[in-house]
């Protein structure tokens, strides 16, 4: 029951986060509690950054691959809400559709196709865990200390406008060559994956 209440609560709190887009683009003036820099943005940031971080830790500590994929699901969803808060709605929607709707399902599908038993687990050695944990915590401490020390200057005062059109224009003018190369790459990957996963004729 607590789970149900929690999920409904998450749903209810997640929804007004999407309001940020309107406030940033100035399209609708009806939603004023989600202005950039306001209290609501702070609350939403802490809730969803916390969700992302906890889910990432869940990915680290869980043993079953499907559990890991589930934690990854929550991490990806929380990151997409962070994109909404950053007024990057197009990236947020693409993150949801490609990562959550595509890559994650592909991963779970891969787990189902390649597992010997339903609960496949490979336990790593203790030494491995200790060394990896030490390195990662050290890395995190270094990174955070640098980030907290660094001075990135004053934040940009103007809020970006409607992003889809701007992204489209810039992608098809300034970034045309990378765009085409990405298209070619996707086709190569499609052919390659189909070739790799092909059944040998008996």
């Amino acid at each position: 029951m607590s789970l149900q209440v929690g999920i409904l609560w998450l749903c209810v709190t997640a929804l007004p986060a999407l309001a940020h887009e309107e406030a940033a683009s100035g399209v609708g003036t009806g939603v004023v509690y989600a202005v950039p820099g306001g209290w609501f943005e702070a609350v939403m940031f802490y809730v969803f950054a916390g969700t992302a971080v906890l889910s990432a830790i869940g990915v680290c500590v869980s043993r079953s691959v499907v559990r890991m994929a589930t934690w990854l699901f929550f991490a990806l969803g929380a990151i997409s809400v962070l994109y909404f808060l950053l007024a990057a709605t197009f990236i947020a929607a693409i993150q949801l559709i490609v990562y959550v709707g595509g890559v994650l399902i592909l991963l779970i599908f891969g787990v189902m196709l390649t597992s010997q038993s339903p609960w496949v687990r490979f336990t790593p050695s203790r030494l491995n865990l200790a060394v990896a944990g030490l390195i990662c915590v050290g890395l995190l401490v270094c990174l955070s200390s640098i980030l907290l020390e660094a001075d990135f200057g004053a934040p940009l005062s103007t809020t970006p406008g409607v992003t889809v059109e701007a992204i489209g224009r810039r992608m098809l003018t300034h970034y045309l060559v990378p765009f085409e190369i990405a298209g070619v790459l996707l086709m190569i990957v499609m052919v390659g994956a189909a070739h790799l996963a092909r059944q040998e004729k008996q």
């Binding site: 971080v53 680290c60 790593p124 491995n128 990896a132 915590v137 955070s144 980030l147 907290l148």
Partner: peptide, 17 residues
């Protein structure tokens, strides 16, 4: 900082799984 935590968690996952 959120991104740094995610990065370290990812590196840990790659190293231990």
């Amino acid at each position: 900082i959120v991104s740094a935590v995610l990065f370290c968690a990812g590196v840990f996952t790659m190293a231990t799984k």
